[in-house]
Design a protein around this nucleic acid. Structure first.
Lengths: 251, 251
DNA sequence: CGTTAGTTTGACGGCACTCAAAAGTTGTGG
DNA sequence: CCACAACTTTTGAGTGCCGTCAAACTAACG
């Protein structure tokens, strides 16, 4: 997988290069598809420039025109309730998809906002639907992608208190960020604490206190958005329901 | 839609009759399909006998072999966490589908248990996949079904306190139970209060107190599993965040 | 009729929310 | 390069909702 580190060359069409990097190829396009089919598939994918923080990829009730794959940065999907409060539904990291929520009734149910400068692959829905009628082998991967995207949600909800939910969230996030590569357990959060708190359904203050508890237990080290998982075993215990113990703070 | 009320006749194969009644036909099978295609589609659907309470339709890690459509009764999907506690993920009512969670990686992520004696339609995955390769018009409806099933989830989570969440839940449930027909706002819960409490992530006691509050506000009338929405406007206000007011309990 | 499971009600304690303010960070313009 | 503004994060104090424990009550089932 180290080959992915190669730099792009001007002679290679951008989309070919990006698709070589991005998760689409890794995840679903390859299995069972022939070279020619893959080529046709890549031909319908378009690529965005780098989208600034705050940019909306789509909004609630927008027509469903495409599926998006995140290449870099981070996109947050959220809804707005009747009181005008925003509820974060999910975070979409590099290699992950969004837009499937709208396959029925062809309108988006969520808003999707860039929260860390991001570039995305755009897969027009009409094209992919037409292509999947011609290439039967495409259907199963598409179904699998949808299923995977929907069912990964809501692991953190199994936690009973805030600290436990944060521990679970950090575990999940770390795995998603390194994307199967070797773990150094150190990373920057692509989203604010506030967004995480919203996603986990508690206040920013509770988020802050929860992180502090994890740090006092020696499980992690946190500085703003920079996170280091110091004691993975300890963090796992907490994620499984153990109460964090206060270690000496002399360090 | 009144034609559906016809009684079955012995000369009609059972599966034809049931499919005439059930939601599959209403929801997705018809649009764009020809008579012959419909016939082939119905031919692959199998029907269960009435499954008793406690019967598992499938369990976590079972192979994904079929999609199920609930014809009657109620099925609950749930997971079991590391501490052995069960977490209700969803309720599946007549006309709704389950099993899509497993399209990837072909293993079920949830358990599915009958909580009110139920009969289901069984759509073998291999057959529907094969058929959809022959009948291109099937793909879009299938995608739409998946999308619809996944995205309907978690309306209640928008509520900030228990009473509000219960109000939202009751609204949603009532609409799902009457399935588009005229509303008399009176129905029996297909599941126990305990299950609802688990689903909404609070204790049975809180569920009970929440229902009492709604009743004291005059919004509903509740007797065990029997529910009557007395004051829909009031209930809607509470679902939108208004604080329930204590009405006189002299009635 | 007895047993069991589900629901209701009460008392008490704790976790998280709210309000409030300070400290640190980032971005902007002078 | 510095000053200032806007935002994020941290920390503290007080309150309230909900979880836990406990017990009474009801419906369902054999």
């Amino acid at each position: 997988m180290g080959a992915h580190a190669k730099m792009p060359t001007a002679s290679v069409p951008v989309f070919r290069h990006v698709c070589g990097l991005c998760s689409l190829k890794e995840w679903c396009w390859l299995p069972g598809l022939e070279e020619g089919e893959l080529r046709r598939l890549h031909a319908i994918v378009r690529h965005s420039s780098v989208l600034p923080v705050g940019h909306h990829v789509f909004r609630t009730d927008d027509r469903f025109t495409a599926i998006y794959a995140v290449n870099s940065g981070c996109i947050e999907s959220y809804t707005t309730d009747l009181q005008g409060r925003e509820h974060v539904r999910d975070f979409h990291l590099p290699g992950e998809l969004l837009g499937f929520d709208a396959a029925y009734p062809e309108r988006h149910h969520f808003n999707a906002k860039v929260i860390k400068a991001a570039s995305v692959c755009i897969v027009p829905y009409r094209d992919i639907a037409a292509l999947s009628r011609e290439i039967p082998g495409l259907q199963t991967p598409i179904l699998a992608l949808m299923s995977r995207n929907f069912s990964r949600q809501q692991l953190c909800i199994e936690g009973s208190d805030a600290t436990q939910q944060i521990a679970i969230f950090l575990f999940d996030l770390e795995a998603r960020l390194r994307w199967g590569y070797s773990a150094d357990y150190e990373f920057d959060l692509p989203m604010s604490h506030e967004s995480i708190a919203n996603y986990l359904r508690f206040s920013p203050e509770t988020m802050s206190r929860g992180l502090s508890k994890l740090q006092q237990a020696g499980a992690i080290r946190v500085n703003r958005r920079h996170i280091r998982l110091l004691d993975v075993a300890c963090l796992k215990l907490i994620a499984q329901g153990a109460k964090p113990e206060q270690k000496s703070t002399l360090n």
